[in-house]
């Protein structure tokens, strides 16, 4: 298959904090610094989708459909407290690394006609994480 991708960028805003379960406030501050306090970000997500070009439409996937699916995924996090209101983050911290994995899995289960190639999550302009569907066997 051709190596061709369609990508889409969307934004959301959410709050979070980094604290390890059972740790004191002091220990959490030592480990995570000011990120141990409840704070928020304007995030940006960039999702890339890979697939064949449909000869009927000239598209890998209809970008309006793609945006709609990404928006549905973002509804689960937008203007939420990621630690307390998103079930995925009951078992791990809402870092950009884990957000990228979460979005990749959520988006993959929605896209039927093409493959999710990568999801990039910007927490700020100078920091982003990307998940490309790679699994390391332990």
């Amino acid at each position: 298959m051709e190596r061709i991708f369609i990508s889409c960028r969307l934004e959301f805003s959410a709050s979070h904090y980094y604290r390890a379960a059972g740790w004191s406030e002091e220990d959490n501050f030592k480990e995570f610094g000011k990120a141990s306090r409840h704070h928020g970000h304007n995030y940006m997500i960039e999702a890339a989708v890979h697939g064949g070009i449909n000869p009927e439409t000239g598209m890998i996937i209809n970008i309006r459909e793609l945006k709609k699916m990404i928006k549905e995924v973002l509804e689960t996090v937008d203007h939420k407290n990621l630690n307390e209101e998103v079930p995925y983050f009951q078992s791990c911290l809402p870092t950009p690394e884990n957000l990228a994995c979460y979005f990749f899995q959520a988006l993959s289960s929605k896209i039927q006609t093409a493959c999710t190639a990568s999801v990039r999550v910007y927490e700020e302009e100078s920091l982003y994480a990307e998940y490309r569907g790679e699994v390391v066997k332990a």
Partner: peptide, 12 residues
């Protein structure tokens, strides 16, 4: 199952 992630930090 362990997921491999890429983290990018930007400096000037």
């Amino acid at each position: 199952m362990k997921l491999k992630v890429y983290l990018t930090r930007i400096y000037r």
